[in-house]
Write a protein that binds this DNA or RNA. Structure first.
Lengths: 212, 212
DNA sequence: GTAGTTAAGTGGTCAGACCACTGAGTTGTT
DNA sequence: AACAACTCAGTGGTCTGACCACTTAACTAC
């Protein structure tokens, strides 16, 4: 366990850092292969079990994917397992819930404004037909709606943050806006009135929380 | 490895489920103690290392807390450390650099607006004297300024996100605004004109990037 | 050439051994 | 009796070495 560590950090946490550094310095992208567990164990001078603890944790977070007999691969962030696990621990505190909802709304507002500059008629059609889809719940529609917006916003970082916050938010409850909200937003897009988006999002609370 | 499992589920995932079920059926609340690793290992007929992989993963998610020599305890779910880890991964990648400044500005804007509702005269004095500190670079002043604001904003999650974005941003170049910007913001606070903050941040580009 | 076999590499899992830390009981001193 | 020091069982932290299961590619036999 020679992974450098200042205080009483656990070995697996040190391994976590090292793996992160490795990914960074080698410019690995999703799909790329990581060294084998035995390799890592030797290079980092840590037991294989410690290396595995780090890898398993990262796997659960959706950061990487392991294929038996093949190896461990960096994966695009797919939070499925995380969501599923976290969702069963919902009972907790109000502060977090409040922060999540507020932060999510802020980010969605800004994504909406950013995207507004790039949306064309086709995009608006997609968004509208998405709202009319009867096979989705309101929560799913919301997600699809803003996913599309985030793709058009031209700010990858903000989009990723949205994914993250939205994901965590989902573990608490499905948050979406009242139906008229999306319509109004589309109207603003159509009339190219980007400046009014701020006001729309700041208008009185219109969130809906699934009872869950 | 007798934890019931349909397909080729890994043992640690089965353990995860069982622990979840245990918590549920025993009505454990944050602070309660879980069975020891050896107990779980025996009860679930799984190797201790597998049990540990599950526990470590849950720990990383912030679902539980382990105290050396004492045991493993259920903890209140705080997504913040997870956010931190995931963010560090999200922040890797090429095109993101150019989004950093924009995202940072957005978050700072919202923090400024949120904090505006809570700032008192003393806070304003602190902020002002901070600007007049001659021992700091413009980048340091900026950081201190918004750190204070983030503390007053009352949204821990958004603050955390700011920290991360700001940190990463620092590794690229020091980003701050022109001196008049902060003064104007303080004036808006003094006159309690929160609504104009949006406009201030959206006004023409006035960022300064250190060449670094 | 193609099908089947083999071997190396890799993740999956387990058992057992120590170490380090905590807390409660035990002992010893005053 | 009160308090300090010690002891020890319980628990997490870590490592090692051993197998098993799966994948891939090289090799062999036809």
């Amino acid at each position: 366990m020679a992974v450098s560590m200042s205080p009483k950090q656990k070995v697996y946490q040190g391994v976590l850092q090292e793996i992160r550094r490795y990914i960074d310095s080698n410019n690995l992208v999703p799909g790329d292969k990581l060294p084998s567990e035995r390799d890592l164990s030797e290079k980092l001078q840590a037991g294989r079990s410690s290396v595995r603890e780090a890898l398993r944790a990262m796997e659960l977070l959706g950061l990487l994917e392991t294929r038996h007999g093949e190896g461990t691969f960096l994966s695009a962030y797919t939070p499925y397992q995380t969501v599923e696990l976290l969702s069963s621990f919902i009972l907790q505190g109000g502060t977090i819930k409040k922060d999540l909802a507020a932060t999510k709304r802020i980010i969605e507002k800004e994504l909406a404004k950013l995207a507004g500059r790039f949306l064309d008629t086709k995009d608006l059609d997609v968004l509208r037909s998405n709202l009319e889809n009867t096979h989705q719940t309101a929560g799913e529609k919301h997600k699809a709606f803003f996913r599309h917006l985030s793709e058009q916003a031209g700010n990858v970082l903000l989009s990723k943050i949205w994914y993250l916050v939205d994901d965590f938010s989902s573990t608490v409850n499905a948050v979406y806006y009242e139906e008229g909200f999306y319509i109004k937003l589309l109207d603003l897009y159509k009339s190219n009135d980007i400046d009014s988006i701020e006001g729309l999002f700041n208008s009185k609370i219109m969130d809906r929380d699934d009872v869950n």
